[in-house]
Structures are given as structure tokens and as C-alpha cells.
Design a protein around this nucleic acid. Structure first.
Lengths: 314, 314
DNA sequence: TACACTGAATAAATTTTACTGATTCATCCT
DNA sequence: AGGATGAATCAGTAAAATTTATTCAGTGTA
């Protein structure tokens, strides 16, 4: 069941009611007097109510039922204006809600920092952030669940734009008592001989494998881990080495055991992290501001001052 | 600032959004596909938002901002339907609010009884009842403040219809120690010689004076009282007799002193109490039901069984 | 009582808007 | 590649909204 009247009719009616005059309403609304007249008649027709009593030569006045309808009509008009306002705000101001998604490895790494900064600057925005794997991210972008994603530039279809933020080369992690533990750098060829713990995630697996393939070798996978925490635990406990990509700020596994990060000697394909969004869709002001924040964050991380810090961590 | 969109555009948009399809929406709404298409474009134009992402050959989906607008648009449509529903209910069911007014003398006399019956039968109606003098009653009817009035058929303009309910002849009231106290009936000519307490209300004063004038005599007014309570007190304390018109169920003044009611011998012009409403305006179902209740009440009062009771009181 | 005035309703003409059917266009799916 | 899908576009038409001019019922004043 849908409403049989239009917002315009309601507006004409309300102004006429407020002024007890069709002519006055016509002036205020910059339309002709018959326009108001007919809008009121149509409303009376569609509601089945007698809204006005006509006083010849001295305007008209609302009937008791007219008054009841009047107040509710006015309130509906207010809400319509509110929606109009909301749309305008959404398109011009940093407010509303912002729905994001990130690839798990570094969402939990960078979001806390960036989010804290962002909500401090723009408290009017309600940010929601999911962690999903690449396929889910792409789906979410396409069906409009997320405004943009923070992820790697891999497997993205044509329809998705990618704005690079930071490029991350792979590096090895080993336990403190691993045979290669003392080394300040490693060749991937050396690693291939040892047992490896593989992060068994859709995109990650393919990427790390491709690093070996690019060198014409195969890794010796001893364990397929389903989570980052498992990889860290397995590595720290000496089950095997692993390859990481995202800077890790703590070299301690969940069970307290430690592991070491060692750079690789070869110039292996790095992964580029950045912002992915639908090519067709424009960012909201809120989304745009968030991307700015991310770019600022990336620049900071890549500054000379932080370069050392980053290296040390890696 | 007024909304730049129409309810129809919102409806088309919402259905398209719910189905992620313009074509599907067109089918559901029984309009052509281009109608939906253009409504969406107009909405995007007027809000300045990109509401949908178009997927070639596989429909479209809402953008994150589209979703935000969607929920609010849907809620506005619900409220519009609610208003539509409300108007329909107001015109067909006994509900909503009912605003009445009555002439003071008997509003407090009959309303408690009738109102109790009415709210018991129709709890969905919110009844408000004022007490006003005739001029205010007429104004209130004309400007739509009251749906109808319970008053006398006096000074009513052409534009107001009157439905008679009960006809009330005047009678005298005197203190228990008044010279005329023992009498079972009186002539108005006898009264004219004594001091009279006049209820100094706009319409009442003119009516009671007219009774004397119709007999070619003048009353001897010793006091002009501004309220019914004062009249009763003055009469009971012997300041003078007075004339009443409405049946009084208690012959005790506020200060505890008593007075007597005595019928008049002449056939003086009675006042007719009834329902007054604007000729042009129709009663709501709620108002109509109230008038029915009043008519029922009047019939009951005039029934043979209650006739004696009424007489005794008068 | 007449006569100008007020203000809503009506009529007719016009412009504006909404809607449709046919077509195009870009993309997906075999 | 080729058929299918589904939104956008276009041109024509139907339907509304709006306007100017007029009518009509009543008010208020001389």
C-alpha cells in the first residue's frame, strides 16, 4: 500500500493551512493560486477527509480533522527535508558511516593507528572495518558493502582501481635456534632446502610460492598454517622457517617463544599494499579523508627517520 | 529549504535497490524500465550522490552512500504510508482525537456522564472538552478548533447547524427563608417585585432579561454574579431569587447553605440545548459517535421514568 | 440596497513532466 | 565469436501541473 499523495501537495496544503489562505500560500510558494487550490482538492480527494472549511471572501480554516492531518503532514515534510539534508551532508561533509575492509595481515597492523587518528579528527563518522580475504574483498567492493579496501594489488579485476601506498618485499623468519639464525641476510635458494611453514591463505600461498617459482625452485613445505598466529608459533618452535611480507613489530609468538626476521638477498617481487575501490564509484568525503589519512601514514612509514625503525623490525 | 525529490522517485529507487535490478523493479511496480531508470537518475542528480554502481549485463548494486540513503528513504516511505493510513483511519474509524466545547452551565452537568460512557466504548479516541461562552464557541467552530459544540440555539449564525437535544424551561430558585419559599409554583410577575441575582454572562443575561421583557416587566436586579457558584451562594444566602434553566442536582451552595427550586406558571420561552456544528463540515466517525451518545443521553433524560426525577430536581 | 472588494473555485490553454516502445550499447556467459 | 542480459538512450505520446483569465459567493461600506 503506497501513499496516494505527493510531497508537493502536502507542502502546498501545509502552507495554506498555516496561513489560512490559498492566495497567501501561493505568494509564499511562488506559484499561482489555482495550483494551491487544486493541490488541496487532490489531497481531500485522496485522503477522503474534509481538510478545510471555506469562508467566502475571507480565506479558509482547517477543520478538526484537517488539523490532525496538518500536524502529521508537517512532520512528514520535516523528515523529507531531513533526508534531503542528509543526502547533501553525505555528499559534501565528512560524516555518516564509512564501511571498510582490509586484508587480514596488515589491517590489524595499520588500522589501529590510522583509525585512532581518524576518529579523533572526524568524530562525526562512524567507521566499520572488516577483515576479509581477497575474493571477499572484491565481492564486497562490487556489491557496495565496502567503500574501499586496504589490500594488495593482486587478482583485482579491471573494474577496480588501485592506489599504491607502500611496497613490501618479502623477508624470512626463523626460530632463534634455527641453523640459519645467525645470518644477517639469506638467499631464497638456501631456504629452499629447509622445512617451511606456509601461510595457507588463498592469495598469500600463491604469492609466496611464486617467489620460489621465479627462481626455478620449490619450497619444502612442512606445515600449512591456517592463521598468522599459527605461523608465528610454528616458526618460533622450530617447525620450519617462513616468509613474511608485512612488517611485524613483535618477534614473539603467542606462547612466548621468539623468532628472528632476516632480509632476503634476491630482488624478489614485492607486494604493493594500497587502497582498492570501484573505478566507477566516487569516494564520499568521509572515505576520501580516510584515504588521505592512509597516505599520510604510508609517507610517514617511508620517511628516512622511520626507515631505520622499519628495517630493524623487519 | 524543501526536498527536491518526490515520493515516487524514492519508491522506484528503493524497489530497484532491494532487487538490485531496474528491470525487476519495473515489473514489480508495473511501469516500464526507463521510468525506473530515469527516476534513479533524477534522484542521483538531486541528491548529488552516486546511489548505484551499474554492472553491465547483470543489474546494479547500491554504493555505500546509496545504502545509507536507501535506509532513510525507505523509512520516509514508511512514514508516508503511515500518514496515508492515518488519514484513512481518521475518515472511517472511531479514533484519533476529538475536540469539543460546551456552554459552561451544562457542560459540567452532562459531560461527565456522557464522556464516561464514550471513552469506555471508544478508548481509541482522545477527547478534549473546553467550556466557553457563546461567542468563543462560534469562533472555535468556525476556525476549526472544535468539531462541534454543546450549547443553546441562540445567536448562532447561518453557517452553523443546530441539532436540538433537550428543551429546558426556566424556573426560579430562592433561599429556604425567602418569602416565596413555600410556594409550589410562581408567576414571573410576582418575582419581578423581589430582588434578583442575575448571572452576568453574555448570552444568559440577555435570555433571562428577555423573559421579563416578554411579559412587559423589568426585573429588580440586586446583584450581578460572574459565576454559577456565586449565584447559588447569593441565592442561598437570601440576597435575592434567581432564574435557572439547567437542571441542578444539588440544591446546596458551596458554603453549605440551601436553596429551593420552584417552577414558573407562565409558558416562558424555553432554551433548547443541542449540538452545534459548521454546516459545511462533516463530522468524523469519532464525532458522529459522540453525538449519538449525546442523543441517547437526551432521550434517556426525557423518558417517562426519568421525567419525575428531573421534575423533582427542578 | 447597492456596489466595490475579497478570495476561492473553475475553465481553458499551455508548458512541463512522466511514461512507453523501440533501440542501442556494453558486458557476461557459453 | 555469438547469443543473452540488462541498463541507458531516444523519440513520441499521454498525463499532470501550472497559468491566466474569469466566475462566483459572500463581506463590508456608503
Amino acid at each position: 500500500m503506497s501513499a496516494r499523495f505527493t510531497l508537493k501537495q502536502l507542502r502546498y496544503f501545509v502552507v495554506a493551512g498555516e496561513n489560512s489562505s490559498v492566495t497567501k500560500a501561493a505568494e509564499l510558494l511562488h506559484v499561482s493560486q489555482p495550483s494551491i487550490s487544486s493541490a488541496i482538492q487532490q489531497l481531500e480527494e485522496s485522503t477522503g477527509l474534509q481538510l478545510f472549511v471555506r469562508h467566502h471572501a475571507q480565506g479558509l480554516s482547517l477543520t478538526p480533522q484537517g488539523w490532525q492531518f496538518f500536524y502529521k503532514a508537517k512532520s512528514l515534510l520535516n523528515e523529507a527535508d531531513g533526508l534531503s539534508q542528509f543526502a547533501h551532508t553525505l555528499g559534501t561533509e565528512i560524516s555518516g558511516s564509512l564501511s571498510l575492509v582490509g586484508f587480514p595481515t596488515f589491517t590489524s597492523l595499520i588500522m589501529p593507528t590510522v583509525l585512532k587518528e581518524y576518529v579523533g579528527k572526524y568524530p562525526a563518522v562512524n567507521v566499520e572495518c572488516d577483515e576479509k580475504h581477497q575474493q571477499e574483498i572484491i565481492k564486497g567492493l562490487i556489491n557496495g558493502k565496502y567503500e574501499f579496501a586496504i589490500t594488495y594489488d593482486m587478482q583485482l579485476p579491471e573494474s577496480i582501481d588501485f592506489i599504491p601506498l607502500i611496497t613490501l618485499p618479502p623477508y624470512a623468519v626463523v626460530s632463534t635456534d634455527h641453523p640459519l639464525a645467525g645470518r644477517s641476510s639469506l638467499s631464497i635458494h638456501e631456504l629452499a632446502g629447509h622445512a617451511m611453514v606456509m601461510l595457507d591463505w588463498p592469495m598469500s600461498r600463491e604469492y609466496f610460492l611464486s617467489l620460489f617459482i621465479s627462481q626455478g625452485i620449490d619450497p619444502n613445505i612442512s606445515y600449512n598454517a591456517q592463521s598468522l598466529g599459527m605461523v608465528r608459533g610454528m616458526v618460533a618452535n622450530g617447525i620450519g622457517y617462513s616468509l613474511f611480507n608485512t612488517p611485524v613489530h613483535s618477534n614473539v609468538a603467542l606462547d612466548g617463544t621468539k623468532f628472528l626476521s632476516i632480509p632476503l638477498e634476491e630482488d624478489l617481487m614485492p607486494l604493493t599494499m594500497g587502497v582498492a575501490k570501484l573505478a566507477q564509484s566516487n569516494l564520499t568525503p568521509a572515505g576520501s579523508a580516510f584515504v588521505d589519512e592512509l597516505e599520510h601514514f604510508a609517507k610517514q612509514i617511508l620517511s628516512p627517520a622511520n626507515h631505520e625503525k622499519l628495517k630493524k623490525v623487519v
